[in-house]
Simulated scan of single mutants.
Amino acid sequence: MELTQITTVAGKEFWDRVRNRWVLAVALVFAVFALAIAYFGSAQQGSVGFSSIEVTIASLVSLVIYLIPLIALLLGFDAIVGERERGSLDLLLSLPITRTELLLGKYLGLAGALTFSTLAGFGLVAIVLASRLDLTSLFHFFGFMFSSVLLGCAFLSLAVMLSVFASDRTRASGLAIATWFFFVLVFDLALLGILVGTGGQWGGEALPYALMFNPADVFRILNIFSLDDVRNLYGLATVFPTQLASPWLLGLIMAAWVVLPLGVAAWRFRRTC
Rank of each mutant, 00 (worst) to 15 (best):
A43M: 12
L119Y: 03
A126F: 04
F40Q: 11
L158D: 14
L73Q: 02
G41N: 12
G123Q: 10
A154E: 10
Y66A: 15
Y107I: 02
G123E: 05
L102T: 00
S47M: 07
L74Y: 03
V64A: 01
G49L: 09
A126P: 05
A58D: 12
F146N: 01
V81I: 12
G121F: 10
V55E: 14
D90T: 03
S167K: 15
G123A: 05
S42L: 08
A166I: 01
L93R: 08
I37F: 13
F50S: 06
F77W: 14
I80L: 03
L124G: 14
S163M: 06
G82T: 01
L151Y: 11
S88N: 09
L108W: 08
A130Q: 11
I71F: 09
G41I: 11
G49M: 11
A34G: 07
L63T: 04
S51A: 15
V128I: 15
S59V: 03
V55Q: 15
S52P: 03
A72D: 13
G112E: 02
I53P: 07
L95A: 12
V125K: 06
L133M: 15
A113S: 13
A130N: 11
S51C: 08
L93P: 01
L70S: 07
L74Q: 13
T98S: 15
V55L: 13
G49N: 09
L63I: 04
I97P: 05
L124R: 05
S117Q: 05
V128R: 15
Y107C: 01
R84S: 03
S157M: 02
F142E: 00
G143E: 00
Q45R: 10
I97T: 05
A166S: 14
A159V: 10
L110N: 12
F144Y: 03
G143V: 02
K106W: 00
G46C: 01
A113K: 10
A111V: 02
V125S: 07
D134L: 12
Y66R: 10
Y107S: 03
K106Y: 01
H140V: 03
